[in-house]
């Protein structure tokens, strides 16, 4: 499931797998040479389906080591460092710049993790946003915070969006600003046999930050969504292009592509991977 899903299309991508695995007898010497001969920064790992779970051995799709030139075009099989006799010792997340410049410092930030329970997150966040109703009685907008940020990375991205969507639905008339960025995660792996050999792996993990605000935000900012834009997204889209292909829903069946000329065009040159017009 994780194989071949996501790597940078770039050049000079090599597989650590080939550097390590074919040397069963040399595992003591050669990998160490690799690990110590290079600064740790030269191990960029582009990893898409993240494992933020510390317990499980991470699956790494693509590690680049400038030793053995294995060109990328072959989809690299998922590499399990854990199976190579490596153990993850520590994992640190590099601080990424705040995606919302000019945001007040006191904004509530909900850091959504893979294992976070939505009810816990929402229970806390909703209470803060709505304020303590019991105290002030019925202040219209007196209580509660004006803004909240949900952030999550890797496999917590979906949960982050779900939290924001729930909050938008419950609170209502919230302005939204969504930002995407890569987050850099450093992992230190230690060889279980070699003892002293260490390896630092840099992984980039997609992360999302969603700012929900009761106050208006800049509509010109990319990623801005006005309040109650729930269904408007779709209708606006459909109106934009008087699409002749309302019938072009997912007809994956035996229909020949020629009945969808535009789709055919989009699929031209796709070679092996045939994209059905869906």
């Amino acid at each position: 499931m994780f194989t071949g899903c996501g790597m940078i299309t770039g050049q000079n991508q090599y597989l650590i797998r080939d550097a390590v695995r074919p040397l069963p007898g040399l595992e003591g010497s050669r990998p160490i040479q690799i690990e110590h001969g290079l600064p740790s920064g030269s191990f960029p790992v582009y990893h898409n389906q993240t494992y933020s779970n510390v317990v499980q051995p991470a699956v790494i799709n693509n590690v680049s080591i400038p030793l053995k030139p294995v060109p990328l075009p072959v989809p690299p099989p998922a590499l399990k460092l854990g199976q190579e006799g490596f153990k993850k010792v520590c994992r640190t997340e590099e601080d990424s710049p705040c995606p919302f410049p000019g945001l007040a410092s006191g904004v509530l930030e909900m850091r959504v993790k893979e294992g976070s329970k939505i009810r816990n997150l929402m229970g806390f966040a909703m209470a803060r946003m709505q304020g303590e109703k019991g105290i002030s009685g019925g202040g219209v907008s007196g209580g509660g915070l004006r803004q909240v940020v949900f952030t999550g990375s890797g496999r917590a991205v979906t949960k982050t969006i779900t939290c924001a969507e729930i909050m938008k639905r419950k609170v209502g008339s919230l302005h939204q600003l969504t930002k995407l960025q890569y987050k850099v995660v450093n992992e230190v792996w230690e060889s279980s046999e070699g003892g002293a050999s260490e390896m630092t792996v840099h992984r980039t993990v997609p992360s999302i930050s969603i700012l929900l605000s009761k106050d208006p935000l800049d509509p010109q900012e990319p990623g801005y969504q006005p309040p109650e834009a729930l269904s408007a997204l779709w209708e606006e889209r459909e109106g934009v292009e008087s699409s002749p292909q309302t019938a072009c829903k997912r007809t994956l069946g035996p229909l020949p592509y020629s009945s969808f000329p535009h789709c055919k065009r989009a699929c031209l040159g796709e070679g092996v991977s045939v994209h059905a017009p869906h």
Binding site: I161, E165, T178, G223, Q225
Partner: peptide, 13 residues
């Protein structure tokens, strides 16, 4: 891959 030329605007629903 566009060296930062491309911009992203994400919406959720």
């Amino acid at each position: 891959s566009s060296q930062g030329v491309l911009q992203l605007a994400a919406n959720t629903s």
